[in-house]
Nucleic acid binder design. Structure first.
Lengths: 315, 315
DNA sequence: ATGAAAGCGCTAACAA
DNA sequence: TTGTTAGCGCTTTCAT
């Protein structure tokens, strides 16, 4: 009997001796069978080799371990079929709950889970109309703050290079940009908003585009760092300097942002914290069935100021 | 009964209907209990947020899934205590086998596992004197090839910036360097071998060091890309050009290597393949107890030639 | 071709 | 305080 208060010290010691001698360790799976509890959670993510997720996974695993849970993990490559398989796997392994990030197109699986009353928390992206609690990072706010930084520096001619607009993230960042421009009563020109696709090359092209305009912008907010790197190239190629001729703000804070010259001002995302929070929420749901608070948790990204931005009038 | 040949088609269909209607899914944990088999493997790695491991983890998970296994993962942060806990966890979860990368100082755990006749494969680093099969990448060969590339380009004055020499990897790369120099009958100068610690700053310092020498080298092999980035800075600061004045080869092929100017020639490691191979080996061990081949698997890194190297006489 | 029963290793409930 | 027993959901064996 597991540490019950009514076992004599003496017996405990005796038992412990035998345990050590035989090298016995308890069979968690038999225990799981009778207790209907595996002390395991599932982690379903699109791609562990996308630099966003390892930190998240680490946060999940660290916190889960602290709370006495272990984690089974699955990559889905954003593939609907694999997402379904991953969920079925979690069911058959009888995990106590699941942390997942599904592709938007896969609502059905979420609904099925809801029907079965499974404990789930969504991370990074929330499926619209789903009832499960989500832990996400506020992209709109991030973009708003990035743009505001430029405005506070005195800039008025600000462009934006978006990500692939099919993706919600890009839409959110675009909206944050527009909102900042609006809040400060600047007007933005449609031609200063150029669509990219998150790749370095698309950043290069978009920037080239912007720089050949007659009234070219003096600052640009770019939806991710990789495109910003491409933009750097375009800027240098035109013989311009950062930030003297043009200020640039990226998004993501990838490793290169601090290494490249000039250091890239960018938004950093609380990835580890996201993982921790998700594990916290899920496990408190599991351990304590009443939902104390099932509001979504929205984490704030943070501005990292480096050398790629400066005031318009600083010169 | 699971797909036995002696069940009438009719019955099968009937059963299937009921299954679908009730939304039944089999309880893998009860099955595991009676079969003494969980179809789960453990993955114990130092740090998923170190860019080396996510690819490895992906390789493991992909291959495991193909072979019908799922994976429980643990981060250890190279902490002995956490390594032990992770192993105990795997035992209590009754995984069918473990893929792990332990710190060298933790031999005892490996030995204990051996005693218990557990299926294990080691990745990335092999504990000396352990009997478990390992899947590793040949650092000595990689360094040898990197250096040879420089020699084949016609260089004779070649320096080396090492990593932290407490770490086996650094030793291996140093040895590969020396071996290449020896094979081609060049002689190396001790002062051309400078110790760094894998950080960008140490690369900068070491390079500064090398460049202020009276007889400064015309080429340098650096034990990782991050230090190479630091070295770039030192080189540019001295008003020198890459590769005109000095050729540089790095190691790791981190993302920045292809983005920085000039593109860094470097060694890339088959990380995904490492993960796959480890899963292959482990699961074939599990499924088929006789050890077909328990030799270590040694994977070869590959040279990626970019713009940071050129022949000594090309000018 | 199908049904009944035993048992995997554990915990909870109960009896002594 | 300790010992005994039932049963978690499955597979396997044996009997029908």
């Amino acid at each position: 009997m597991n540490d019950k208060p009514d076992v004599s010290e003496e017996t405990k010691k005796k038992i412990q001796k035998v345990i050590d001698k035989l090298g016995y360790n308890p069979n968690g799976i038999a225990r799981g069978l009778v207790l209907q509890k595996t002390h395991t959670i599932g982690l379903i993510i699109p791609d562990i080799s996308n630099p966003f997720f390892p930190e998240v996974a680490k946060g999940v695993e660290d916190r889960a371990r602290e709370l006495n849970y272990s984690v089974i993990f699955c990559n889905t490559d954003n593939d609907k079929k694999r997402e379904k398989e991953a969920i079925d796997l979690m069911k058959s392994k009888h995990v106590d709950g699941i942390i997942l990030s599904l592709s938007i197109s896969n609502k059905e699986e979420i609904y099925k889970l809801e029907e079965k009353n499974f404990d789930v928390v969504q991370i990074d992206r929330k499926i619209p109309d789903s009832n499960y609690q989500a832990v996400v990072i506020d992209n709109t706010l991030g973009a708003y703050n990035a743009t505001s930084h430029l405005i506070e520096l005195g800039h008025t001619d600000i462009a934006h290079i978006t990500g692939d607009l099919e993706i919600q993230t890009s839409q959110d960042r675009l909206e944050g940009f527009k909102r900042a421009i609006g809040t400060f009563d600047l007007d933005y020109k449609e031609k200063w908003i150029v669509e990219g696709d998150f790749s370095k090359e698309s950043g290069y092209k978009a920037m080239k585009n912007l720089l050949t305009l007659e009234d070219r912008p003096k600052a640009v907010f770019i939806a991710n760092d990789l495109m910003a790197i491409g933009a750097y190239e375009a800027i240098f190629e035109m013989g311009l300097e950062i930030p003297q001729d043009i200020s640039v703000v990226g998004y993501d804070d990838i490793e290169i942002a601090s290494i490249i010259k000039p250091g890239l001002t960018t938004m950093t995302q609380p990835k580890y914290k996201l993982g921790q929070a998700a594990a916290d929420v899920l496990i408190s749901k599991i351990d304590n069935k009443r939902n104390i608070n099932d509001e979504d948790i929205i984490l704030n990204p943070k501005l990292i100021i480096r050398d790629s931005t400066r005031g318009y009038e600083d010169e």
